[in-house]
Design a binder for these strands. Structure first.
Length: 112
DNA sequence: ACGACGGCCCTCG
DNA sequence: ACGAGGGCCGTCG
């Protein structure tokens, strides 16, 4: 796409896929970076997913705070891990010691 | 074109 | 439980 061209609308297909998927995570539920990577067709691109979320263009539509690590840890957040944890708790997600407790709430299936 | 850098993941000790 | 080390991959300088 336009990586060097206009500074407007600079986003890759990869990023769009990630953002679109995250946009459909219901309130109170979470998924993982790993699951997202798998869903976009690049199962090992977990770090790249984190990068994409870090550039979240529209936090309202794309609730990137609902994406956590695969081991249950809350994980990073542009606004700070602490704030991320608060947001999740506020949505009803049980968190203890930085870990998501109700792990079974994670959405494991995303279809392209 | 190339190397560094992440909101990561996995395997060992 | 916890850290270290290697791997992975899209982005940005």
């Amino acid at each position: 796409m336009g990586q060097r061209g206009l500074r407007v609308n600079m986003c890759s297909e990869f990023e769009k896929r990630v953002w679109d998927l995250v946009a459909y995570i219901p309130k109170g539920k979470v998924t993982t970076y790993k699951e997202l990577a798998r869903a976009v067709g690049l199962p090992t691109a977990t770090r790249a997913v984190g990068n994409a979320l870090n550039k979240n263009p529209h936090p309202i539509r794309v609730p990137c705070h609902r994406v956590v690590k695969s081991n249950g840890e809350v994980g990073g957040y542009a606004g700070g891990e602490k704030y991320k944890t608060e947001l999740l708790k506020q949505e009803g997600v049980d968190i203890c010691n930085g870990f998501v407790v109700k792990f079974f709430k994670i959405l494991h299936t995303f279809n392209k």
